[in-house]
Each structure stands twice: as C-alpha cells, then as structure tokens.
Design a protein around this nucleic acid. Sequence first.
DNA 1: TTGAAAGCGCTAACAC
DNA 2: GTGTTAGCGCTTTCAA
Lengths: 325, 325
Amino acid sequence: MREVARVAGVSVSTVANVLSRPGIVAPETRLRVQQAIDRIGYVPNGAARQLRGVPSPIVGSVTLDLANPFHAEVNRGIEDGLAAAGCLVLACSTDLRPDTETRLLHLLQQQNVRGIIISPAHPDPAQLLEVSRRGTPVVLLDHPKERLDLCAVAVDDALGGRLAGEHLRELGHRRIAYLGATVDPGPVTRRREGLRQAVGEFLDVRMDVHPPSLGEAAAAAAGRIVALEPTAVVCLNDTAALGLLDGLAALGVRVPEDLSIVGYDDLPFARRLAPALTTVSQPKYQLGLAAAELLLDEGRPGHAHREVRFQPQLVVRASTAALAH
Amino acid sequence: MREVARVAGVSVSTVANVLSRPGIVAPETRLRVQQAIDRIGYVPNGAARQLRGVPSPIVGSVTLDLANPFHAEVNRGIEDGLAAAGCLVLACSTDLRPDTETRLLHLLQQQNVRGIIISPAHPDPAQLLEVSRRGTPVVLLDHPKERLDLCAVAVDDALGGRLAGEHLRELGHRRIAYLGATVDPGPVTRRREGLRQAVGEFLDVRMDVHPPSLGEAAAAAAGRIVALEPTAVVCLNDTAALGLLDGLAALGVRVPEDLSIVGYDDLPFARRLAPALTTVSQPKYQLGLAAAELLLDEGRPGHAHREVRFQPQLVVRASTAALAH
DNA sequence: TTGAAAGCGCTAACAC
DNA sequence: GTGTTAGCGCTTTCAA
C-alpha cells in the first residue's frame, strides 16, 4: 500500500480512502491511485484489515462428511447463498467425531470467521452456545432449534421416519427393520424414532461403519437383516439402500417380492436403480441456502434467532410392494 | 493476550512464548499461563499472527462444482491430506465460469491463503502463473503440468477416452457418439479426443446445460442422439449416463440391446443401475490427497514442481454389448 | 481534499 | 527465563 502511495504520489491514507470510501477522494486523485494499483498489481491484505475490525468474509461450514452427496449439495447451497454477500466457505468434515468437531470449532474461532454453520456431531450443544456467546454466530443445520439461543435450519426427521412407516403399514407390512449405524447423527436417530412409532414390530439393525464405506457395510449387513425375517427394511439413507440391494442380490433375495426397501434423501440415482428406490426426499440445496441466509442475517440490526423448518416427502417407486399372503 | 498476561502475572511475550515456543518457558510459569488461558477462554487471533508472518492454515480449493460427487470426493481427499498439517480448506465452485474463477483467485490471494488447488475453468493458465509468481503456491488439479512452472495432479484423460473407444470397437461398434456439453472442462475435452482417435465414425453431441441439471439435459438429449443412429454412446460422466438411460427408457430404446452406453467416473451407483453401467473409473479421493501433498511440499526447502499422474481404468458391466448383426 | 499518527493483537530480536 | 520494544499492513480519527 505504501508502494502504491509512492507511485501515485499520495499518502497511504489516501490510498486507503480510495479503497474503502472512494466517494471521499477527488476523481483525479482516485484515478491516479487506481492506475498505480493496477500497475503494481496491489492486493489488499485481508489479515491487516481484519485486525482493524473489518469482518472476515469467511464462514465455516462444519458437516459430517463432505464426500456424502447429501452434504455436498447442502454445502453448495451454503456457498451460493453466501456468494451474494461476497463470503467464502471454509468446509470441514467431522466424520461424526466430537473431538474433531471441538478442534475445528477452535480453529474456526481463531480464524475470526464471520460465522459457523454446523451439523453437530456432538450431542450436547453447550459448546456451540459458548462459541456463539463469544461472538461467533452459529447456525444449526439439520438440528432443531428447540429452546436454544441460536438460529437453526431443520427438517422434520421424525415425520420422515413416520412417512416411511405408514407407507409400509398401508402395504400390509408389520415386521419392519431399520438399518442404521452403531452411532448415528441426530437426524437419523430422529427418523428411527418416527419409524418406530409408526410400525408394529420394529427391528433395530446397526452397522459398524468404520473401515469400509457405508455402502459396503450395508451390503455386508444383508445376511443379518434377512435372518431377522422382516418384510421391509428402511435404510438410513440411499447409499445404504444401494449397498443393501447389492447384498440382497448376492443372497438371491428379490426386491420387492421378498423384501421391500425404503431409502432416504432421494439422491439422483434413486429413481434409476434396479428396482427404482422408494425413498424419503428432503431438500438439500435449499437447506444450505436457508442456513446461509440465517447466518448473514445474524449481523443485521434487529436480528432475532429463529428456525426454518422443512418437510420431508415420501417418494414411492418400485422397491416397495404390498405384502404377499 | 494482555488479559492472560495480567491474570498469570507475566508479560505478553511470556504468554506468546508459551504459545509458540513452550520449551523455552519455565514449567511453573508455563502452567500458570496455561491455567490463565483456560480460565479466560483465550483464543489466539489468527489475523494478528498472519500479520506477523505466520503462514495461514487456510488452503483454497477451486473446483468446478462442489455438488458434483466426483469433485466432492476429490475435495474430501484434499481436506484429509491437509488435516495432517493442521490446514483447512476454503472450498469454492466456479461452475466453469472464467470470470468467477478470476474473482475467487483474487479473494483467495487477499486472504493470504497458504496455497491454491485448482481445477481450472479458464483455458489459459497465465493467470495462475501470475498468482504463483506473486507468492501463493498453485497446484493444478485434473490438468496436465506440461511445461508449466507449477505442480500438477493429472489423470490420463485421453487414455480414458481411448479405453472406452477400444472397448466398443472390440464389441463391433463403429458409429459412436460422445455426449458432452456445449462448453466442457479440459478433462472432458481430452477424453473426447482420445475417443475420437480410437473409433471409426465419431458423432459429437453437445448439451446446453444451463438451467436444468446435467442429468435432465442428458435425458432431453436422448432423442437427438437416437436420430444420429449411433450403436454406442460414451457420456462425459456417470450422471449424464444416468440421465441418458432415463431418456432412452422413455423412448423405448433398450440398453444394451439397441444401444450401448459408457459412463465416466464410476460413481458408487454405477454398478447398481439398470443395466449396470460400463464406465471408466478414475481415482477421486487419491487425486485430492496427492494435490494436498504437493501443496504442502511447496513450502519445503528443496521443492521442485512436479506432476503426479493417475491412470483411468475401464470397468466393463452390462450397459455395453456386442453389436448384433 | 489530503496527510499524519495511533493502534488493532501478535511475534521475535534483544536486553536484562 | 522473562520483559521491553519495534513493527507486520491497514483503517480511521483529526488536523492542516
């Protein structure tokens, strides 16, 4: 900046004025400074600006797994929602590990991010309230606001589970399994409860998803599921359903003749699987967009914390069928 | 920090020492300072640190579209590769728009990021060389190094196209279409050329992918493709192949009996489509991991720019078949 | 309309 | 082993 000032024959503060309040500088001077900036290829130093109190354009996004297509699309919504305000997304994955989440929250605070959008891995929100209290706005994603003093974007997960359960009941199913993981994120736990309340006999199946992928774990769980003799299985998401279809095919179990399958998320491939997957759809891009808007609103004068709530929708396809007698 | 010093009864520089060079501080003093830090809940200010020359832990990742499962997984590889060094990923999508890319590069430089990993949208790398020359390391992703003075992670795209073409030739196909977009990223263009060189009659089909999704555009292109009377179609990626299968089903065209289809990327769903998709697999997570490693190496003493090259692999499934006579 | 100067929070050289 | 001190690049009064 000093160099720009020298070349333009003005003082640093005039250069600063051209950058921050161009209206206050004489047109002729402004032009000279602009030319100097272009000639030198001057790029302002964000760190120095921040130190002077200008808010950072960076927003932290803490998700469970960026490689998961659901989260990837949510993040794209966040990115686009923030882009209008010139903000950038610092994207992090926790793999559902509370300690990783704690570490990331620390790092983000240190970076003075404008705010944090988080799908919590830790069941206790105390940590998040503390971050918020310290001055970094926090928006919950895929988590209900309840009485928390934070903004939240939520999907009615229990309803999603119930929709799947009621659909299966109507088809005559009574023994229904839920394929989840040994440790599930909040939304999956809430779906399970919604399903449990909607069905007769509920069979809880848990996968250990450590080393292999979710799909492989689901394929490997096929035998255990079949042994329980359910007539239908609801999976924690479409990827698990995909793997389960694989595993069932290997066992010679026909879907939906022998077993009905329901997925969750309605990823683009769901409609083209063999058989086309019945699933529960939830908005993805819109979730991210809403979270971005809530976060941007945090800075504004009359801001009050609020919740934006989305409804899931059952999409019936060919992987579920009426129970044969 | 001053507050911590006051509480611990030491000077700010002692606090600084505890944070940056703990070994130099007397254990007793160190403990007192640590306790003060915990009690106050002090969080260091990254901006101030940066201003003093400590490198930023943030790395920019500029991709074409974070919501694309291929890029999402690449980014996850980047994230994990950088995590070991305590770095965070600022993830951006360009949607293949050169002006967006330019804007993002500017923003990233302003943030003094440690480096930038980029899948270029702009065909001319001049801009990237300039960024690198100015002191922000740049690693090319999904782009060959060639004579550029940058590190690069590349996949042999032409080979990928050739593999698809040779597979189809062996099955007796001669009229082969390539389904791409009106404006394709570099890798897709290179695959097209590889395919063109491997087949007899090459039919170039371009989709306009602006408002709807790639899958929908591909479904809509089914009619145009059929009119060209190819016996096989290679798609720019699996998502397009998925859409095309949809469109063909609506037209009553059977795959592979009437038309063979080849995808690209081998996304998890490819093996479970109806029919299971023949596709060209390329490493995704590994690409990101390699890029992260190259970037981290940029800071080290004897660093020399180099290219890490991956080979694509043909995965034959049920969507391609020998040409009936 | 422009310039001089103070200071944001921190690090590191140096003196004690 | 600990404290004093001088900036890092910028914004923002305030004075000229």
